[in-house]
Design a protein around this nucleic acid. Structure first.
Lengths: 215, 215
DNA sequence: TGATTTTCTGACCGCATGGCCAAAACCTTA
DNA sequence: TAAGGTTTTGGCCATGCGGTCAGAAAATCA
């Protein structure tokens, strides 16, 4: 159904092309296109983020996108991968520095806020894709499965705190869903109110959940 | 800019036509179209909820929608009005029965959950419109201004509790944003996991915030 | 009944979309 | 230089969109 258009075609046989197999030009173009897609999604929303619009922002012709990506679907998937990778790399060391459950919860909320401050368009674009991108059957492309990992991670923190007696007993799934919702809402509120005190919000939110979980 | 197509044209002069001026057929058709729009939005998402799709679900021709509504924009605005009205009528008596701040917070979370259980498509459609509908300048049609009312309502509860000493001191805006986010996330989680225990989630969520606000 | 108004249909318009491709331009290597 | 591979262009396609309209059908009125 989809035509063969792997650029270069150097690695003839296999399906996927790894980054190591790509030329510098290829990698740079892909990065440039992804950046343009992030900006367009963040500023104009999912509906107006057409290939033409993205190409225009990147200063290239529309066909270039089709040349470097199998289609819009692949472009958006690479975009999500890209932002997720960045975010993980940013948070990992900060989370590792907090061993106790209470401190980890606080570190999660506050380091995510720190990332948000410096990457507003990326997170806005991610939100657009998550809320809107659908597969051919009409189902959301990034639904539950994406959040499931996140929930499991938070639940691990909660269980640890409950076992050590630092946290009270509560439903860890509801708590995980609520923490993530609180963080997402913090971003969206700040995205709409750029003058809002993001760090202050993060501290209040961390305190809110510290109170909510404490034994 | 917009053509005159007030059905009936009975009330010649003025701009808006009130429901009292509409025939039964007119009101029934409008309700039928709004219902079809709700179903389409809830099941297929904003992007696929075209006038053609909505008309198909309603079993009528596309032109009928244009006859009864000035355009897609008006249809969606009437849909939001319709659902909001329903929701307010459902919650008002339940909120009135809870006078103390702590009880009011609990009543808010739990009566909203009760409404959700019986009106899943309506709330899913509302979410689609809120997250996607944009005005001609590309800005979200229902943005902050819509939530502002809700936040102010919740903040009133929090301030009352803080003044009576029932609640600890905290940032009421952050708490309001977080409560609303928790409730919205509860709906979305249940929407994706229909087997999820919605009432149980609501109780846990109410308890979560009871702990978070208590002095 | 016939006349008038209200409602509905189905075809059509201009426009934007994602995708496609032949031809041109560019870059590297021989 | 010439040759060959890589990248870009700009126009084209089918599809679906919101909106419009003349005329048919249905309901209401006299």
């Amino acid at each position: 159904m989809r035509s063969e258009n792997q650029p270069g075609g150097r690695s003839a046989a296999k399906a996927a092309t790894s980054d190591a197999d790509r030329s510098f030009i290829e990698l740079a173009r892909r990065a440039q296109i992804i950046d343009a897609a992030v900006g367009t999604l963040a500023e104009e929303g999912y509906a107006k983020a057409s290939l033409a619009r993205i190409a225009q922002r990147a200063g290239i012709s529309k066909g270039v996108i089709s040349y470097h990506f199998a289609g819009k679907e692949e472009l958006l998937e690479r975009l999500v991968e890209h932002v997720y990778g960045q975010m993980g790399a940013f948070m990992e060391p900060r989370m590792a520095a907090a061993p106790e459950p209470g401190a980890r919860l606080r570190a999660y909320v506050e380091s995510l806020a720190a990332y948000m401050r410096e990457h507003r368009p990326q997170l806005a674009a991610l939100g657009q894709v998550f809320h809107n991108m659908r597969n051919s059957e009409g189902k959301l492309r990034y639904g539950v499965a994406t959040s499931e990992e996140l929930y499991a991670f938070l639940e691990g923190i909660f269980r640890e705190g409950q076992e050590s007696g630092e946290f009270r007993p509560f439903d860890v799934r509801v708590m995980a869903v609520s923490v993530q919702a609180g963080v997402d809402a913090m971003f969206e509120y700040w995205d709409v109110h750029p003058e809002h005190d993001l760090e202050g919000h993060a501290r209040e939110l961390a305190e809110l959940f510290a109170q909510a979980v404490r034994a």
